[in-house]
């Protein structure tokens, strides 16, 4: 029996077949492995500002690759908090060999996740303000959180944290989300230290001045530069960037007599790393001159293992806080969730 053959169904069927084939082929293309690498690849997760055009990542990659015979690949997330969440999401399946950009406030939680391995390095020549005991993480830089302003825009900056909090119609602020960002968490802890039980009230007073809460530091600082607010939560050392890279003297960190919270940024090796030896090599490199000398004028922070004499003069000229806070990682780990939830309730309500 012959069937009448109308061209239409055939055409339709052929086009469906073509579509399926094309779709599958394209799918295979996307899912296929990346081009073969002959060198081992060290994957380092970090926050987006670190390997950006203005960050120290480029220099560090160049210097490390010159001695490791490997390829260093940066993979970025918004900020330190997101980094940790990302690693927890990925668990043992993570591609990361090293996670760089957590801080002491997240260290307790990161350690408890069981995703990090011991670094096995005895660090020498550390120049951080505390004694280092962690066997899982190593510090790579540090600084004080501070609100930064431009004196051409803000002529009468607050002289104390109390003035910042209480001042009616005071300067507009850009801050970061404590869930995703280490500076954001730092501010939360800073207010917690200064105000204790009354920190909720302090946040309620700050809220109307806050223009927006960003996911990460880079976004907030970018907005500050664009003129979106009078002050941005950043670091006491941030003005050095404007002096050295832009020859601008107008940027300052407001130094508060109540004291400033210290941040020590750290990195650790993942347990899931395929390349633990290479990762360890990177950790050792991290506290050597090759890495450390890129920090002051790259990440605009105080290096964790470089004598003060090697810092650019602009750093020495920066006014320093008279008092510092730094909570024990365990204390932060135990209270972080409750403090953040209280903040969310105060801020979101």
């Amino acid at each position: 029996m012959t069937q009448p053959d109308s061209p239409r169904p055939h055409y339709a069927r052929r086009s469906v077949v073509t579509a399926v084939t094309a779709a599958l082929a394209l799918g295979a293309l996307a899912a296929g492995p990346a081009a073969a690498q002959d060198k081992p690849v060290l994957t380092v997760y970090t926050y987006d500002g670190f390997p950006s055009k203005y960050g120290p990542g480029g220099t560090i990659k160049e210097r490390f690759e010159a001695e490791c015979g490997c390829t260093l690949e940066w993979v970025t997330a918004d900020d330190g908090g997101t980094l940790l969440a990302r690693l927890k999401l990925e668990g043992d399946a993570t591609q990361a060999d090293v996670v760089l950009g957590l801080d002491t406030n997240l260290m307790g939680e990161a350690e408890a996740s069981g995703l990090f391995a011991a670094h096995g390095i005895t660090p020498t020549g550390l120049t951080i303000p505390v004694e280092w005991t962690s066997e899982t993480f190593l510090p790579f830089d540090w600084g004080w959180f501070a609100f930064v302003y431009n004196d051409k825009k803000l002529t009468n900056p607050p002289k104390s944290l109390a003035e910042l909090v209480d001042g009616e119609g005071g300067p507009t602020l850009l801050i970061q989300d404590p869930r995703t960002s280490t500076p954001g968490l730092g501010l939360l802890l800073w207010l917690q230290e200064v105000y204790g039980d009354k920190s909720g009230e302090a946040w309620a007073k700050l809220k109307p001045k806050i223009v927006t809460v960003t996911k990460g530091w880079s976004e907030a600082y970018g907005m500050f530069i664009e003129g979106e607010a009078d002050m941005v939560l950043s670091y006491q050392s941030s003005p050095a960037y404007h002096v050295i890279a832009e020859s601008q003297e107008g940027f300052h960190a407001a130094i508060f007599p109540e004291g400033h919270y210290v941040q020590i940024e750290v990195a650790g090796i993942t347990k899931a790393s395929d390349n633990p030896e290479l990762a360890k090599k990177f950790m050792a490199f991290m506290i050597s001159d090759g890495f450390q000398s890129a920090i002051p004028t790259g990440n605009w922070m105080y290096p964790a293992a470089l004598p003060e004499s090697e810092l650019p003069p602009a750093f020495a000229a920066l006014p320093k806080p008279a008092k510092s806070f730094l909570l024990d990682p365990k204390v932060v780990q135990e209270n972080r969730r409750a403090w953040i939830d209280a903040w969310l309730a105060a801020y979101g309500g």
Binding site: T82, R86, D177, R179, K207, V213, K215, L344, Y347, G348
Partner: peptide, 17 residues
């Protein structure tokens, strides 16, 4: 920011952040 979120956004935050 966190002051303005839908449940859908909060789910995203809970997982991603």
């Amino acid at each position: 920011g966190p002051g303005a979120a839908t449940l859908e956004v909060a789910i995203f935050e809970a997982i991603m952040s």
